[in-house]
């Protein structure tokens, strides 16, 4: 039972990060019908910005600001930095190819992905970067928390899960309640009809990149709080985020959230009950099975476009 609780907790932590990444894939795919392969690398840049910001704030042993301020500042820095990166990618790698055959932006996306990953490796080397959050307040983030049965739920996991869910709720409110959010949904359903309403499609596209990339930045920090990062981590994590988006039905926002969690749980249970060596493989098996047998995802529904 304790094992199950522990694995569920791991799955929830992992899954909430995957969900944030999956949202970025879905937001962009929904509007541009483009698989933004560079998204995982935006996530990676987020992990590095968080790392850099920690050093700027004096490191984790002796930070110049209180712990909570530090956590918020590094997250905001990663979100802002990634948002800018997302806008730059859209502007220079995708926009010029807007009217090109669909394969062109896909290739461009792959190129951007390699470019970012290997530039980072060139600039910062390929070694692991550890946030060393254990040193914050003498390990308080790991020692404090609450227990479920014999399983400790440490503060560091609570932070990850709660922040991810808060961001997902905020995104949901934005998309369902605000005018710009509705414009995004309208654009992803029918771009030309949206333009007929006076919606500026270019702005909506940029907005989707800003949102998706900022979430990837946040996901990067939340992930790297506990797990070391490196320059080429974006490939694996990006593929997992993409798989999560596919599980939920790519283009669907609630789908991305659900898909992230499903994948997190699947990976965690596989690690615990089968083997850690096979868990990544499982992810790709799931991806392929979904792409072949249920490309519309678990939440995908029949197209309700009439006439």
């Amino acid at each position: 039972m304790d094992t199950f609780i522990q694995l569920t907790l791991n799955g929830l932590t992992l899954g909430s990060v995957y969900a944030l990444i999956a949202l970025g894939y879905s937001l962009v795919y929904g509007i541009l019908k483009l698989l933004n392969f560079a998204h995982g690398d935006v996530f990676m840049v987020g992990t590095f910005i968080g790392f850099g910001a920690i050093q700027l704030l004096g490191g984790t042993v002796n930070p110049i600001v209180p712990v909570w301020t530090l956590l918020i500042l590094i997250t905001l820095a990663a979100m802002a930095g990634c948002a800018v990166l997302g806008v730059v990618i859209e502007r220079f790698a995708y926009r010029p190819l807007r009217d090109a055959p669909r394969i062109a932006p896909l290739i461009s996306a792959l190129g951007v992905s390699f470019f970012i990953a290997y530039s980072m490796q060139l600039l910062f080397g390929s070694e692991l970067r550890n946030y060393d959050t254990f040193s914050l307040d003498g390990g308080a983030l790991y020692l404090e928390g609450f227990d479920i049965g014999n399983v400790r739920v440490p503060m560091i996991r609570i932070i990850t899960i709660v922040s991810a869910f808060v961001m997902m709720i905020l995104l949901w409110l934005l998309v369902s309640r605000t005018r710009v959010g509705k414009a995004m949904r309208a654009t992803s359903f029918d771009r030309e009809a949206a333009a007929m309403m006076g919606i500026d499609i270019d702005k909506v596209i940029v907005f989707a990149f800003v949102l998706g990339s900022a979430l990837a930045g946040a996901a990067g920090v939340l992930f790297a709080l506990r797990i070391p990062t490196y320059a080429t981590i974006g490939f694996l994590i990006g593929l997992k985020g993409f798989t999560a988006a596919v599980i939920g039905g790519i283009g669907s926002i609630p789908g991305a959230m659900a898909g992230g969690l499903v994948l997190g749980f699947a990976e965690s249970y596989a690690q615990g009950y089968i083997s850690t060596r096979w868990s990544d493989l499982l992810v790709f098996v799931i991806l392929i099975l979904f792409l072949v047998f249920r490309p519309q995802g678990i939440l995908g529904k029949a197209d309700i476009r009439k006439v």
């Binding site: 509705k182 414009a183 949904r185 029918d190 030309e192 009809a193 949206a194 309403m197």
Partner: peptide, 23 residues
Amino acid sequence: VPENRRLFGPMTVLENLEMGAYL
């Protein structure tokens, strides 16, 4: 009023109207 109406199918009537007043 476009050919084939081109409504935003997965959005409510209210939201469709709201999009008409986007600007």
